[in-house]
Design a protein around this nucleic acid. Structure first.
Lengths: 345, 345
DNA sequence: GTGAAAGCGCTAACAT
DNA sequence: ATGTTAGCGCTTTCAC
């Protein structure tokens, strides 16, 4: 009895292909993966026979076995907190384009909240991926990012506070940019400035950088924070619309809004316009993200964000770190800026 | 010399833990993964020793090895075409909640265009995941979905035409619902109805169901299709705004718009309002998706989509198929409907 | 140019 | 209650 008559498997394996082509499993591997490092090719005749057998059997290589052996998965991840946004999708798109050249696939790992991070990060911890980019403001404890990096996982994180130790970090200088945005409103004479926060930011103890920037700008200018002006809603458009609508109907409505997302800022503008208010005369609005969308609102949205969206530096940093995981940490600078736009038309 | 003095590895492996705890590698496995099927537990004392060793060494199990052995990865994927949308994010969120109970992680596989599908689907073909949900209108050739299912991959696909053979399909009856939406506009007396399409739909030869529905509704009512009224822009808000703005400035502007997404429909409404037109009097707009956001626009958006967003049936179908991949294909019905909303307030 | 064989790190029978 | 052992399916020396 030959080896071939083992218990029937659900999917064909390399050995099945080898037997069908009348070669060894090693040869099949050479044909499919190329003989790395060696110049010795497989003869054209065998190559064809193997390829035919592959097609006939519908063979697909087994990823687990391959990556166990090769110590790499050829998959990279983008870790982010939903909801998605155009900035993130551009990052993923560019990573994708770059990844195909390396024969690498891109997946995303959405993490909705910190309490869920621990379980989901298994995908990174257990080396399911060769490396990852961590998008700004993920729902992950910084300590977990450090732990992943310390574990040797190639990582590039958009983060302003993490030390660039065993990972690369991209500095956005979010707090400074956000502070300048709120100060800008104050310079325009605004005193009652509302803050439209991401839902999870208000839930966290330490609060996030954007809220910190907001508070700092107010206190630096001797303005007392009115808790009634700090509301959630930056995550979802309908929430933003409803929250702003409620604010504007209040007894002492704000004259300006600083929104943690462009998304919400735009809905704030709509809520104001639907309430019969002029923007920016009756209500000034500043968003965060510098998305294309902000350019087509009426009036165009003043916002805070990265001036450009060329992620090649970031992506290259990831590839380099994957190729040399022990490389010392690097710090990239893509500082956010205040992008003021005057009403157009 | 004991086995322990092999060449130094980058990460500790089970054997390292075993040696440190003075037990066998099998015991470590039992402690960490539980003794599946068996009732025999590990003694409390060894358990603690092993766990201590794990912590001291910072051991993380190797996913490739584990899944090679266990024939499962405990990872499921959601395949979709960017940009993301609230409906999709709700699906992912619910899948997530359900997955953690099974000790399963969720990843997403964004596929931007068909020509990129082949390479990216490696993640599914090579059994990187235990199963997948394919969101509506993915950038994948139906033949590829069939091939994946035929290969034995547990799959649940939102699709109206695929045969529920070796996969489960969720029928949305998109075309019928979209047709009824366009017919609704025609009944209101509209003759010049524009179609705001997803970018890739216009690029494809066969065109998509939404465009087909649009054409059918027009021809059924004896209205000739004006190519000038079929424009892309449904993917990105600024594009939608610009396209509608251009349409409205044309010599013979449309009186109604059928948009392939709520997202774009809402921007169509704003383009109209910004152009000084009344909605729906001067321009009627219908979207697709039945998103929450459509409720807070002024006027509220009439749309086409799933009335509810409880995905438990779909998610359960995935788990059942993963547990029994040979189960015959099932057909789920979540038909889209026309959701008419009159101007509110 | 091709094959034999030794693992990659883990789990699960089976033995003790 | 714990250890021994035989692989999972693949890649990669090394020998021919």
């Amino acid at each position: 009895m030959s080896k071939s008559s083992k218990t029937p498997r659900s999917r064909p394996i390399q050995r099945d292909v080898a037997e069908r082509a009348g070669v060894s499993s090693a040869t099949v591997s050479y044909v499919l993966s190329g003989r790395r490092g060696r110049a010795n090719p497989v003869s054209e005749e065998t190559r064809v026979r193997v390829l035919d057998a592959v097609k006939e059997l519908g063979y697909q290589s087994n990823h687990a076995a391959r990556s166990l052996r090769r110590h790499r998965t050829d998959i990279v991840a983008v870790v982010h907190r939903p909801p998605s946004n155009p900035w993130l999708e551009e990052l993923i798109e560019q990573l994708h384009r770059s990844a195909v050249e390396r024969g690498c696939s891109v997946i995303t790992v959405p993490i909705a909240s910190r309490d869920r991070a621990e379980t989901v990060l298994r995908v990174l911890r257990e080396r399911f991926v060769d490396g990852a980019i961590i998008a700004p403001d993920p729902a992950i404890d910084p300590a977990q990012v450090r732990a992943l990096a310390a574990g040797g996982l190639p990582l590039v994180a958009f983060d302003d506070t993490l030390t660039a130790r065993r990972l690369d970090v991209v500095r956005l200088a979010q707090e400074e940019a956000c502070r300048s945005a709120v100060c800008y409103l104050i310079e325009q004479g605004h005193r009652r400035i509302a803050y439209l926060a991401h839902d999870e930011e208000l839930a966290l103890d330490g609060h996030g950088v954007k809220f910190a920037a907001y508070r700092k700008a107010l206190s630096d200018n001797g303005i007392e924070l009115d808790p009634a002006l700090v509301v959630p809603g930056a995550d979802f458009r309908p929430d933003a619309y409803a929250q702003v609508q409620k604010l504007l109907r209040g007894s002492t409505p704000p004259t300006a809004i600083f929104s943690a997302s462009d998304r919400a800022a735009i809905n704030a503008i709509w809520a104001a316009r639907d309430a019969g208010l002029g923007v920016p005369d009756d209500l000034a609005v500043i968003g965060v993200g510098n998305t294309k969308e902000g350019e087509s609102v009426q009036p165009a949205l003043t916002t805070v964000g990265t001036p450009q969206t060329d992620f090649s530096q970031v992506i290259d940093a990831l590839w380099e770190r994957i190729d040399d995981p022990t490389r010392s940490g690097r710090e990239l600078l893509e500082p956010w800026r205040l992008v003021t736009r005057s009403p157009h038309d």
